[in-house]
């Protein structure tokens, strides 16, 4: 099963953020979405789980039309989708463990012991054993990010949406997270969309990479293809040369 976006457009007031995005994350694939800051990557990702409703276009997840779902069905669908927020979005009135348990208590047929086991296991995955009783406010930014990731994977979702999972982490932790993303795909067959700025990470984890630019998908290809691309916008982004990205007015 897959995630399919077709002609998705979204504007806030007069600002057009997405302007006809069509994209597919195939079953079991890890798709990276890159693009400049403020281009609408988070908006795109939120549309996938129905947090933002596009003005036009359809979004299909797991064979269901997110844009048409009734409220209850949408909540049911969301239990199959893990979402890693850009700024972790931990519930700051709860401990780390409770944060993780929040999603688990919505999974039917899990005993209390099983839930505890899941929480512990997920914390181990992100190298945070022993932090269960801490409050989010007591953690560093990177640690919070890893808790957010643990919370998303704890429910063993079929789909995982990562919003910049490695931004702001040290190189070692970055590698740990990248490996985790790879493991999720290999061991659990998860279909993922990873929004990132970080090209090393994108090359490492992605089966394909899409570049969002000016409200549309500017480029879509394998890591090798994108490395070899001669599209000035893609090159400008990858090499960090903004002057290349200024397109001549046609």
């Amino acid at each position: 099963m897959s995630i399919v976006l077709d002609g998705v457009a979204k504007r806030f007031g007069t600002a057009v953020v997405l302007n006809g995005v069509s994209l597919e994350a195939r079953d079991g694939e890890t798709l990276a979405v890159i693009g400049a800051s403020g281009v609408g990557k988070s908006v795109l990702l939120k549309s996938v789980v129905g947090l933002i409703r596009p003005d036009v276009g359809t979004i299909q997840v797991d064979g269901e039309l997110v844009t048409e779902l009734r409220r209850q069905d949408l909540y049911n669908l969301r239990r199959r989708v893990g979402y890693v927020f850009q700024f972790a979005a931990l519930f700051d009135s709860m401990t780390v463990e409770e944060n993780l348990a929040m999603g688990l208590s919505r999974v039917p047929g899990l005993s209390l012991a099983e839930r505890r086991e899941r929480v512990a296991e997920s914390l181990r995955l992100v190298d945070l054993e022993g932090f269960g009783a801490q409050m989010p406010g007591e953690l560093s930014g990177g640690q919070r990010k890893r808790v957010g990731l643990a919370r998303a994977v704890a429910i063993r979702p079929k789909y995982l949406l990562y919003d910049e999972p490695t931004t702001g982490l040290d190189p070692v932790t970055k590698t740990v997270i990248d490996r985790l993303i790879l493991r999720m795909r290999e061991e659990l067959g998860v279909t993922s969309v990873v929004v990132t700025h970080d090209m090393t990470s994108a090359y490492r984890i992605a089966d394909r990479i899409a570049m969002l630019h000016a409200g549309r998908i500017r480029y879509l290809g394998t890591p090798d293809q994108i490395r070899a691309s001669d599209d000035p916008v893609v090159r400008g982004f990858i090499d960090g040369r903004p002057e290349l990205m200024q397109e001549p007015v046609t």
Binding site: Y75, R78, F91
Partner: peptide
């Protein structure tokens, strides 16, 4: 603003 409400939604809570 810290997206905790969004997070709740993604975890299946209204």
């Amino acid at each position: 603003v810290t997206e905790q409400i969004d997070a709740l939604e993604t975890l299946g809570y209204d």
